[in-house]
Amino acid sequence: MPSAKGETMLRVEGIDVFYGDVQVLWEVSFEVREGEILVLVGANGAGKSTTIKTISSLLTPSRGRILFQGQPVHTRRPFEVIDLGIAQVPEGRRLFPEMTVEENLLMGSLSPAAKPRRAESLEWVYELFPRVLERRKQAAGTLSGGEQQMVAIGRGLMARPKLLMFDEPSLGLSPLLTEHIFELVRKVNAEGLTVLLVEQNVHHTLAMCDRAYVLENGRIALTGSGDELMSNDHVREAYLGL
């Protein structure tokens, strides 16, 4: 059952994350609320992807916990996270290069919640991305970067998640295509999908989000609404170059 808009959906509570002996996240806490677009911005190496990977349980926090609709996520194995309703569009797309576009999309809908709606979801994705429909029989590895990003997003949508996490979807795309991708994020959000968006494209994302957090050197440095952060002196100087 969808809870009321604005209720906390995902709660990250004071997580410390290491790669081996190297600590990358320090006491990172934030929350994603039902129905919103939450943006996580930060410079290269700030720990954005690490945060996303930890939510997907690819990494395990050594301290703190992650709760999704009240249920612990950090104790699950990576392949069990999607069943909760959390999907991610990973950094660098991570398509299955030798499988066709359609097979990649089908891989997105393996969870018990998504499988019965497969045909319907496929139609939905093809409607959102007519370009992907044209290429459905082509090996994913032979697509252009932009087309691959569309397939990666489509694959995420195929899971019919409650929360969809995007890790730098604009990476390597033309300004026009970036615009198109962000428009799409807004569109699926308007249809009721909660979005956690990781971006370096601060201009754009702060303008379109409900709330944002700034991650600096593995710590949450600032938080506020998009407008608040846009007028914040530190953000203007460090991220917007104003």
């Binding site: 069943d83 990973p90 991570r94 398509l95 891989m107 393996l110």
Partner: peptide, 8 residues
């Protein structure tokens, strides 16, 4: 790793 994100 990507497969495990798909629930595999």
């Amino acid at each position: 790793e990507a497969a495990s994100l798909m629930g595999v």
